[in-house]
Each structure stands twice: as structure tokens, then as C-alpha cells.
Simulated assay, not measured.
Amino acid sequence: MLMVSLCGALAAAVCFGLSSVMQAVGMRRAGPVSEQDPKSLVRAWLTVPFLAGTGLDLLGFGFELVALRHLPLFLVQAAIASALAVTAVAAAVVMKERLGRAEKCAVAAVCVGLALLGVSAGPEGANRAHTDFYTALAACLVGLAVLGAGAGRLPGRWRTVTLGLCAGLCFGVLALAARTLPQLDPARLMREPATYLVAAASLIALVLWTMALAGGSVTTATAAMVIGETVLPAAVGVVVLGDEARPGWVPVAVGGFLLAVGGALALARFGELSKSSSGDTPAAPSVSLPRTG
């Protein structure tokens, strides 16, 4: 099951990464799009590439759930962040985006980091959590929502960074809650607090992420989000849920995590795929890396 779960984490990263490119293609195909013109946005959302990208998002979330059931959070979250590497490579092929030497090195760093994590990760810790754990997650969500609402009044870069970080932390809460979900029996899921935390975290994260993108740098917002969704959830997985590396492999796991996340941060500009390399296609609003967890 460990290998199946690892394949699930990588498949989720591929789905999320390709989804970003598909949705960017859909936005371009729809022609000039304005955030102030709802009809133009709806027209873009209804294009076949955009709908296909949304389908990939849902498929990616399914793969992520498979991964979370048998892998430590530090591996799964690093794998999800590596979707930016998939986006970068796909953008270079499909949208003729240029990859510089540093960005090629960043893609390689992500691949090496994930390989190191894959060989060093031990089994995941507890799948069930105490009621206090869910209460703490709910309190964190409320706090992040309040902080996000206040951050909307901050000036310039601080607004973007804070909102992106809050969105990333909400996605981290989503992953922590999803990690403790029982077998996917609908009747049982309705009785689980983790189910409602996943739904609430998704909604709050998407609202904060949209706010972060409005009038801010997508690259800055993406970098802040990657930090928020990887570092703290990974630490909680180790300290609270009992995730661990194989005996004697802790330095390798730490090095792999830093390589994978650092590479993703170096590729943060690929959270934005709105400019045509040829310059003859009208720019669409920023299309950020879709997130579900």
C-alpha cells in the first residue's frame, strides 16, 4: 500500500499541475477576459480546457486522499507543492513558456527532493485523532478567517503575503483533517468532524486565495501559500500524529523536504500563466495553481 499511496501523491501533483495549464489555455481560448465582466469569466470557465482542468482538480483530490491514508504528511504536502514543477514543464511544452537555467535546476531539485522523501519516509502515524485535535483545527480556521479579513486592509505586498500564507495554512488544515478521515463510507463520513473541517477549510482557503490574487503578485501569493501548506502541517504531522522517517534516515528526509519545497518556491512564478509568449494573445486574468489540499 505504501507504493500505491506514493503513486497517489505523485498523481495528485501531476493532476494539479496539468490543471493549471489547462485552465490557463481555457482562459486564453475564451478571448479577452475581464474580472470586472462576469460574463467573460463565465465564458472562460465554460471552455472545454477549463472544464477539463477542473475535472483534473477533482481527480487530484481523490489521489491526494489515497496518499494521505498511508504516507506521512511531510511527504504528501511536499508532493502537492511539486505540482508547480509539473506546471512549469507543461507550460514550457504547451504554452511555450521559457524555462531559464535556474528554473530547470529548480525542477531537478523538486524531483531529487521527492525521491529522497520517498526512500526515507516511514509509515504514517495515527489515522484517528482526539476530539481536542479537531477543536484546535476548528479554532485555527476561525483565527485564519479573522486574520484574512483583517489582512484585506493591509497595503500592497504585505496584504498579498499575509493572505497567501493564510490560504496555505487553511489548505494545511484541510490536509490534516483529511488525513484522519475514516474509510470513505458516506454514512460514517457524515458523523465525522473531519468531514466538516475539510469542507470549511476548502471554502475559507479558496476565499482567502482569491483575495490574495486580487490586485497582488501571483508569484508572491503562490510562494507564501506553498510555505503555509507545507511547513506547519508537516510539523504537526510529526509532533501530533506521529509521522516519522525510517530509522537513521531523518537527515535524508529533512534534506529532501527542503529541496522539494525550495524548488517549488523557485518556480512560484508558474502560479501565474496569463501572458502569451508570442505577445499576440490578449492577456487573461492571472490563472493560479488550483488547490484542493
Rank of each mutant, 00 (worst) to 15 (best):
residue 21 V to Q: 01
residue 74 F to Y: 06
residue 187 A to Q: 13
residue 95 M to P: 09
residue 55 G to Y: 08
residue 228 G to T: 01
residue 285 P to Y: 03
residue 20 S to R: 15
residue 225 M to A: 12
residue 185 D to T: 13
residue 129 A to M: 09
residue 58 L to W: 06
residue 166 C to R: 08
residue 176 L to F: 02
residue 197 L to C: 06
residue 75 L to S: 01
residue 93 V to D: 07
residue 174 L to V: 01
residue 189 L to G: 12
residue 272 E to N: 13
residue 157 R to C: 00
residue 109 A to C: 11
residue 265 L to R: 02
residue 148 G to W: 02
residue 152 G to L: 08
residue 293 G to E: 09
residue 98 R to N: 07
residue 228 G to V: 00
residue 31 G to D: 03
residue 149 A to W: 08
residue 43 R to V: 02
residue 40 S to M: 06
residue 261 V to C: 12
residue 42 V to A: 09
residue 279 G to D: 04
residue 64 E to T: 14
residue 87 T to H: 06
residue 179 R to I: 14
residue 130 H to Q: 11
residue 186 P to F: 03
residue 34 S to F: 11
residue 227 I to S: 06
residue 36 Q to E: 15
residue 261 V to F: 15
residue 52 A to H: 05
residue 248 G to Y: 00
residue 197 L to E: 10
residue 272 E to P: 03
residue 68 L to V: 02
residue 89 V to N: 03
residue 218 V to A: 15
residue 19 S to C: 02
residue 223 A to I: 01
residue 277 S to I: 05
residue 212 A to V: 08
residue 133 F to V: 01
residue 262 G to L: 10
residue 238 V to E: 06
residue 213 L to K: 02
residue 35 E to M: 13
residue 193 P to E: 11
residue 7 C to L: 12
residue 162 T to M: 07
residue 105 C to Q: 12
residue 76 V to F: 12
residue 206 L to G: 08
residue 224 A to P: 01
residue 5 S to F: 00
residue 75 L to R: 07
residue 39 K to H: 12
residue 263 G to N: 12
residue 27 M to K: 00
residue 281 T to G: 03
residue 47 T to V: 09
residue 90 A to I: 06
residue 60 G to V: 02
residue 152 G to I: 08
residue 252 V to W: 11
residue 141 L to Y: 04
residue 57 D to M: 13
residue 184 L to P: 11
residue 11 A to N: 02
residue 278 S to Q: 09
residue 200 A to G: 14
residue 247 P to T: 09
residue 213 L to G: 03
residue 64 E to C: 14
residue 155 P to R: 02
